[in-house]
Amino acid sequence: MITNILTQIIFYIFALGVIGSALMVVSAKNPVQGVLSLVLCFVAMAGIWILLHAEFLALILIVVYVGAVMTLFLFVVMTLNLDRSQLKRGLVSYLPFGLIIIIFIMIMLFYVVGPAHFGLAAYAAPTAQPANYSNVAALGTTLYSEEVYPFEIAGALLLVAMIAAITLAYRGRRNRKQVKIASQLAVCREDRIKLIGLPSEKKHEDTP
């Protein structure tokens, strides 16, 4: 019983953290503050995922998302010299639309996913796993046996994404004393030599 109440308290604390920090992401004036709120949101959601017995994915969320992707966001936001007043133009004028969209989607989803269809009566709480159950082992068994082909495709996708990101952001080296063969071969004669037809002068014989 005490575990039950404790679980509920933990769930609501993390849920409040997720929703509060998501609201801060949406309404942040400063982009850096927005990225940091997003980090908080991911960490709180990782807590919810641990409550859902997905320990490996929760740790992946923290290590990969907070550690790598959000750091990338932070680097980009800090590198770009953003004009804050420019970024927030028209936020107030769109606020009614945003609120209407929030209320509309929430009412719609509450009817669909509310306790009437997905309550404890319809879906009983999962039974506790035995003590020697390992989420990592179970996930790995599925991933490397049934889903090994999609797994390899995901690896190829990451490789393609890496090459694409490098190609997009790479400018080539500057000040390098290297022969550019392509530009040398592209030279044609007209670029280097200009032939000017000078009219030949006549010698004046009547001058003294």
Partner: peptide, 8 residues
């Protein structure tokens, strides 16, 4: 226990 609808 927490119902599935809470997470959803």
């Amino acid at each position: 226990m927490i119902a599935l609808s809470n997470y959803l």
